[in-house]
Design a protein around this nucleic acid. Structure first.
Length: 569
DNA sequence: CGGCGCGGCGCG
DNA sequence: AAAGCGCGCCGCGCCG
């Protein structure tokens, strides 16, 4: 009978078996069990069912995918690899515990290595250690580092949220995003025309039109250098072939060429080949990579999960007798900035639904469009254009918020590191960057050395300026997801008649998150629970705001709809 | 032939 | 051709 005071169970391999070590809240070992690998999934399921604990493992998908396949879920985890990456870089961690010298834990995602190893035998990627003794040692180092840190509380929160995100990323893949291949096919046919020749009919037509106008029946439209030369021969003296530059010219080839590029992009990135490769049994199952971005945002690998064009949103369709909750946060990053900086004036502008209109209402800027480019310019470090021109107005109106991003930029330019609200820290500058800066101060440095160094310094300043905001926004989003996961899991299951079996056994009968993209989520839910699920989405957003910012007066209003399709209205 | 950098463009 | 952050994927064209 397991001890009731188990706080964590550390899992790891030992020979052919798995060893599970119960630890109490102080980290002391309570008991140790050896379990054959063939029984580990059932064992995890039974332990979780008896009393949820926090599962400590080297890499979430390696352990959790099999649990999900078996129809079970777990509530909480501690992902050693993700936690290591946070603590290794954290400015608030002193390395008394030897965390930074445990370099085996710096390896790339083990799950990716598992996938690749099947096909790529000569290049097995390094993976983090799987053994139980290594897991116990790393977990001890991490707890010691947290205990010694003055920001241990915030970092614990961040690691818990990051680990919950890792659970969710695995769950998103297991559940899949409901995707109607017929709707997708219909959109492709309508936009691209019938498939027949080498390219769909509409693309062929547009290409022919471009070549006719250029007077060049063999012009290559897909090779940038060749297209550029063809445009020059036809008298269109552009420097690039980008849509942005083309649009500024008044030439008959511009409209059909831009249209050709638009259609070709849809065809090559999300056409029938994508559909055949990525949509199976009515589900799109992308690979999410939690913390794949240095700021803590998620990345994706394969399927372009984070780049699905809005044109295809209509293909995201709920199963029969199910609904989608589609929700995104209005102006997440400026709200995050206001709250982090404790800027009451910006918070006041954010009090309505539309922060940009709030800035206009305060008289700071003249139009919503101006307010938007100015604020984006402040967060991205614009120096010219409308953004750069308008940022000084914001500095006068919102000095605290602007000081926060300006300070972050200055620290970055000087080669320092910056941290998010919960303590995720930006990477240190590369050796090459530091050498460049050092060389530029030499007495014999040339003007061009100096100006190049300044340019690189500014580049890094824009990165750290944005890091604090983007990274803290990612923390808010993780908190939102983690809280929502818990709330949805407590909603009742539906009967067999209303199940959505393609979602996989763990999710076929209850509301679950089906998509996540920085500040937006889609929940797939039985219709009978749609209102309750929508409430959970809203309550989780409010809860995330309180968790990060306490009672600071900022809210995170959602654009939320309950519908059969994810199409933007 | 595969690997890689680049231009271009989709997303936030 | 972005100005102004963070990504992934495509096709091309060069390289070894």
């Amino acid at each position: 009978m397991p001890a009731t005071d188990t706080a964590w169970i550390v899992l790891g391999r030992s020979g052919d078996d798995v060893v599970a070590v119960d630890l109490d809240g102080t980290g002391a070992e309570i008991e140790r069990l050896s379990i054959p690998r063939s029984e580990i999934v059932a064992w995890i399921r039974d332990r979780e069912r008896a009393a949820p604990v926090r599962w400590v493992w080297h890499d979430t998908p390696v352990w959790y995918d099999a649990v999900l396949d078996a129809g079970a879920t777990v509530e909480r985890a501690h992902d050693l690899r993700l936690a290591h990456a946070i603590l290794r870089d954290a400015a608030a961690v002193r390395d008394d515990a030897g965390l930074r010298t445990a370099t085996a834990w710096d390896a790339a995602a083990a799950a990716a290595a598992v996938d690749d190893a099947l096909f790529d035998l000569d290049a097995p990627e390094a993976s983090v250690p799987e053994g139980v003794d290594e897991a116990l040692a790393e977990f001890a180092r991490q707890r010691a580092a947290l205990a010694a840190s003055e920001r241990g509380g915030a970092l614990r929160l961040l690691i818990a949220a990051e680990s919950a995100g890792a659970l969710l990323a695995a769950e998103l893949r297991a559940a899949g995003l409901p995707w109607d291949a017929d709707v997708h096919d219909g959109i492709l046919r309508e936009m691209l025309g019938e498939r027949g020749g080498a390219l769909p009919a509409r693309i062929e037509e547009r290409a022919a039109e471009v070549r006719r106008i250029l007077g060049d029946p063999l012009a290559s439209l897909d090779s940038q250098p060749k297209l550029l030369r063809a445009l020059h021969r036809a008298g269109l003296l552009v420097e690039t072939t980008s849509r942005w530059e083309l649009r500024r010219h008044d030439h008959p080839v511009v409209e059909p060429l831009i249209d050709y590029k638009r259609l070709m992009r849809l065809y090559s990135a999300n056409g029938w080949a994508w559909l055949a490769e990525w949509v199976r049994d009515g589900r799109f199952r992308p690979v999410y990579v939690p913390a794949g971005v240095v700021t803590g945002r998620w990345a994706s690998s394969g399927g372009g999960a984070l780049q699905i064009p809005r044109q295809l949103r209509a293909a995201v369709r709920a199963d029969p007798s199910w609904r989608l909750i589609v929700a995104d946060v209005a102006q997440l990053e400026p709200r995050i900035l206001a709250a982090m900086a404790g800027d009451l004036a910006l918070a006041r502008a954010a009090a309505g639904r539309d922060l940009y209109e709030g800035i206009v209402a305060q008289g700071t800027l003249g139009s919503r469009a101006e307010a938007k480019v100015a604020l984006l310019g402040a967060m991205y470090g614009a120096t010219s254009g409308d953004g750069g021109r308008l940022v000084p107005r914001l500095r006068r109106a919102f000095p605290r918020a602007m000081a926060l991003v300006d300070d972050a930029a200055r620290v970055g330019e000087d080669g320092g590191v910056v941290s998010t609200l919960l303590g995720r820290t930006s990477p240190a500058p590369s050796g090459a960057w530091s050498r460049l800066q050092a060389d530029a101060t030499d007495v014999d440095a040339s003007d061009s050395d100096a100006s190049r160094a300044r340019r690189y310094a500014r580049d890094r300043g824009r990165f750290t300026r944005n890091f604090v905001v983007q990274g803290t926004a990612a923390e808010w989003a993780l908190a939102w997801l983690a809280d929502l996961r818990g709330r949805l899991a407590r909603l009742p299951e539906v009967g067999e008649a209303d199940a959505a079996p393609r979602s996989g056994p763990a999710f076929a009968r209850r509301p679950h998150v089906a998509f996540f993209l920085h500040d937006e989520i889609i929940v797939h839910t039985p219709s009978v629970h749609a209102e309750a699920a929508a409430d959970a989405v809203r309550e989780a957003a409010a809860s995330a705001g309180r968790l990060l910012f306490g009672d600071f007066p900022i809210d995170f209003p959602l654009d939320l709809k309950i519908a059969s399709s994810a199409e933007k209205s």
